[in-house]
Simulated assay, not measured.
Amino acid sequence: MPEVTISIGGRDFDVACQEGEQPFLETAARMLDAEAQTLAQQIGRMPELRMLLMAGLMLADKTAGLEDQLADLSAQLASQQALVEELGARAAEPGPMTEEMAARLEALAARAEAAAEMAGE
């Protein structure tokens, strides 16, 4: 099991992870470190446990906000997909015949009948 040294809030931690998970662990550590650095700038030095707790809570708050946005966007996407399906179904249905279309069809039918009569003579 590989061991990775990560730095959070200016403090180093040795953390074990599964093979291949190092990039994910390092990314997560950078995110936590960014929150810890923000805390250090705003509050100053604090006990390690409190710094990690506060940084974790800040990340959880951001994650909750992103999850809410994702749920909203998923609902909007589902609504749009339903609308696209409805419009597709409407496009596949024959639409109402307009007066102009009916007149053209009648004229074509009359011409076809006249042509058939002439061909029969």
Rank of each mutant, 00 (worst) to 15 (best):
F13M: 13
M51Q: 01
M97P: 02
A103V: 06
E117I: 07
L59Y: 00
M46N: 06
R45L: 08
M31I: 05
M46S: 14
E85M: 04
E86Q: 10
L70W: 04
F24S: 13
E26M: 10
E117Q: 14
P23V: 13
M97W: 11
M51H: 00
D61H: 13
M101K: 02
A40K: 11
L32C: 07
M101W: 02
Q69E: 09
E100H: 01
Q41W: 01
A116P: 10
A110Q: 14
A55T: 07
F24D: 15
G65Q: 07
A82H: 00
K62G: 00
P96D: 07
A29D: 09
L59N: 02
A78V: 02
L77K: 15
E93S: 06
A91E: 03
G65T: 03
M1Q: 11
T98R: 04
A91C: 05
A16Y: 08
A119T: 04
I6H: 05
Q22K: 15
Q42D: 15
E67W: 09
T98M: 02
A34K: 09
Q69H: 02
L53E: 10
L66N: 13
A115T: 00
M118Q: 12
D12V: 04
A34D: 14
A114W: 10
P47V: 01
P94A: 12
T27C: 00
Q18N: 05
L32V: 08
A89N: 11
Q69L: 12
Q37R: 00
V15I: 15
A112K: 07
A119M: 06
G10S: 12
T38F: 05
S74N: 01
L73A: 06
A119L: 15
R11N: 02
Q80F: 01
A64Q: 15
E48K: 03
L49E: 14
M1E: 12
Q42W: 01
P23D: 04
G65C: 04
G56S: 11
M46K: 11
G95N: 10
Q69V: 10
L53S: 06
A114I: 01
K62I: 03
L25M: 05
A107D: 08
G44T: 03
E48Y: 02
G120Q: 15
A34L: 09
A91H: 07
G95A: 14
D68A: 05
M97N: 06
A116E: 14
M58H: 12
D61K: 10
E48R: 07
E67L: 08
L39M: 04
M1D: 09
F24I: 03
D61S: 13
L59I: 08
T63V: 09
A102M: 09
A64P: 00
M1F: 11
L32H: 04
D68L: 12
M54F: 09
K62F: 03
L53H: 12
E21R: 13
A115F: 11
M1R: 07
I8Y: 11
L59F: 00
L70P: 04
G10W: 05
G88A: 09
Q81C: 02
D14N: 13
T63N: 11
D61V: 02
E19V: 04
A64R: 15
L66G: 01
R45C: 01
A112F: 03
A71W: 07
P23R: 12
D33F: 03
M51L: 15
D12E: 14
E99V: 13
P94N: 13
E35Q: 13
M54V: 05
L59D: 02
E35V: 03
C17R: 12
P94S: 08
R50Q: 13
G20H: 13
E106A: 15
D61N: 08
T98W: 00
